[in-house]
């Protein structure tokens, strides 16, 4: 049975190593500082007692009211059968940049391209950041809440 690592416990684990990394914790996820994302993920993957070797899913949510995009990472350890959800908030909604996780989990490659395609989040360090589904000339990011299909 996959144990959902309680976000509070996860936050404590991360804080023990990176005191500044955790921004907030709620019942669902641990919110990290954007700057700390890569090293925390690296730590989560490489630390043998954690061994979060499997990135289940990566996606984004557009919180237009509060003027930020939130990236959601569901991370799992196949070895210990544990799961934790990480979140990162972007700085505003105009041209947001988030570090890419491709070097840590290769599965991020397509999913980050998808997020770039549909939300317009740029991933720093992504090897091949192009639109995944839509054609290159497409303007706008359809999954943002302020996207109007006919106004593109």
């Amino acid at each position: 049975m996959t144990v959902r690592l309680d976000p509070a416990d996860a936050a404590a684990l991360i804080r023990a190593r990176f005191p500044e990394a955790v921004e907030a914790v709620d019942g669902f996820a641990v919110r990290l500082a954007t700057s700390a994302l890569v090293e925390v993920c690296q730590y989560l993957r490489d630390e043998p007692s954690l061994a979060f070797d499997y990135l289940v899913m990566e996606t984004a949510v557009d919180y237009i009211e509060d003027d930020y995009l939130e990236l959601v990472y569901v991370v799992r350890s196949l070895q210990h059968n544990r799961e934790v959800v990480l979140k990162v908030r972007t700085d505003g909604r105009d041209d947001p940049v988030v570090p890419s996780l491709v070097d840590i989990w290769q599965t991020a490659e397509f999913q980050e391209r998808e997020i770039y395609d549909l939300f317009g989040v740029r991933f720093a360090g992504h090897p091949d950041l192009r639109r995944l589904f839509l054609w290159d000339e497409f303007r706008g990011y359809p999954l943002r809440k302020d996207f109007l299909p006919l106004a593109q």
Binding site: V3, S49, H80, R82
Partner: peptide, 9 residues
Amino acid sequence: ARTAVSAQS
């Protein structure tokens, strides 16, 4: 083997 591991941790 995995159940054993997760039981330990």
